[in-house]
Design a protein around this nucleic acid. Sequence first.
DNA 1: GTTACATTTGCAACAATGTTGCATTTGTAA
DNA 2: TTACAAATGCAACATTGTTGCAAATGTAAC
Lengths: 133, 133
Amino acid sequence: MTVENILRDYHLKSTTCRKFILNELLRSQTALTEHEIKTSFPDLFDRVTFYRTLKTLEDAGVIHKIVLQDNTTRYAVSRKSFHEEDIHSHFHCCVCNEVFCIQSKSRINMELPQGFVQHRVSMIVEGVCAACN
Amino acid sequence: MTVENILRDYHLKSTTCRKFILNELLRSQTALTEHEIKTSFPDLFDRVTFYRTLKTLEDAGVIHKIVLQDNTTRYAVSRKSFHEEDIHSHFHCCVCNEVFCIQSKSRINMELPQGFVQHRVSMIVEGVCAACN
DNA sequence: GTTACATTTGCAACAATGTTGCATTTGTAA
DNA sequence: TTACAAATGCAACATTGTTGCAAATGTAAC
């Protein structure tokens, strides 16, 4: 699946910035920060273009954003197999600081106070990844 | 339990800013943003003092910080009954935008990839709270 | 291949959030 | 009351993200 094909599938124009970001995210096994996506060519695009492109890709559902408890934001390609009602979970390794999307379906046994209705759950697991263990 | 007693328990000096923040957080049923804590007296303290005081209270374990997926940061008083290994879960109402600490012990059935070790889990449940339902 | 036109991009300027260094003030233990 | 570490205010800076507008670009139709 080429970057161009993915963009066409989502009815998005095949622009340089979109192709670049998508390519970097596809190459990576982990979720990347804005800074990390840019590392190979830091000034290839204006910061504004970068933010707008990330938002376009996110709104279209090509990628998704992950906000960690340390306030850093990361992005990863969305895999089509995920359903809206699935739990959106990520693993944050506190040694190498990498973030992984957790593919396995996690089930939660939540006790909410009366009257509270659950829509979506986002979960961040902190710990040590296989490589750092 | 007065604000002064709480601060003494944690071996913290009883300063105006600490007392103010702690008081506002104790009065609230929900987690508050920096802005919300300040609403009654917006310019009572310098922004720097505010940030430093929040950090002091957080480091001491009096309060805790919650970062939502929309990148906003909120603070709430920590209840001593919580243990480190407990899941830190919060409810974010998408109607009134309030954030509640979830007191009930939630158990999670996580399937992590091999070699991954779980330390702490932070979970944000999005949905509709009892008042908005 | 050209053309036309909406969309995307770059630039400038701004806004929100958070940090650092340093001088002054304040809380508290002695 | 005093002494001193700790907390505060101020100025300046850093990072992250946004808005308006003019110029450049992608693509569908010709």
